[in-house]
Structures are given as C-alpha cells and as structure tokens.
C-alpha cells in the first residue's frame, strides 16, 4: 500500500505503524463523573466494523513520526485522504 503523506508525498506502508480507528482520538474527559466507566469502556473497546470508508490512525515511524488520519476503503483499500492527526484532533475540539 502507498500512503500519500501530506508533507512527504507517497510513501510505502512499510514505513508506517497501524493503530486503529480514529475513535481513539475521542478520549472521554469526564473522568470524575459517574458515567466515566461506561464512556471509557465504549472508547476503549467498542468499534464499528465498517465495510466502506473508514478513518484510521497510522504513525509514520520510519519517517517524520507524525500520526496521520488515513481515510481508507476497507473493501478496495483505496486511500481517499491523508491528513495530520494533530490538525484533525484540534478540529474535533481537542486542545490541552
């Protein structure tokens, strides 16, 4: 597979490490609340198994060490978009 890195251009997937769904970015912030146990359980373990486009986390370990959001079709392996996780995370409202 080839991942088109936003800065470094097309790179072989061998250079990357895979983590999983971008759901992992949505870490709950309500650790002090009673709902925390359920929310963290959902966050850690529950995933959709989508046949189609998914967004997932890849880490360019043999490159610039950036975490990337890769939009990949699980049926065709077509990669439609690649962006920096840091930007993606900020756009989702995460900060400090």
């Amino acid at each position: 597979m080839i991942i088109n890195h936003p800065l470094l251009g097309p790179r072989d997937s061998e250079e990357f490490v895979y983590l999983g769904s971008t759901d992992l970015i949505d870490r709950p912030t309500n650790w002090e609340k009673s709902a925390a146990a359920e929310d963290f359980y959902q966050y850690q373990y529950i995933r959709e198994n989508i046949a189609g486009d998914i967004q997932e986390l890849w880490y360019h370990e043999q490159g610039d060490q950036s975490w990337l959001i890769v939009t990949r079709n699980t049926l065709t392996h077509e990669i439609k978009n690649v962006e920096f996780a840091q930007d993606f995370s900020r756009a989702k409202g995460r900060g400090k």
Partner: peptide, 15 residues
C-alpha cells in the same frame, strides 16, 4: 515513544 507521540498529537495537541 510511539505512545507518547500519540498522546501528544492525538489527545492533547495543544500542549
């Protein structure tokens, strides 16, 4: 190291 980069870039990008 990979985990720390994840925590920083994905969870707390503005730190």
């Amino acid at each position: 190291y990979r985990h720390l980069q994840f925590c920083h870039q994905c969870l707390w990008p503005d730190l």
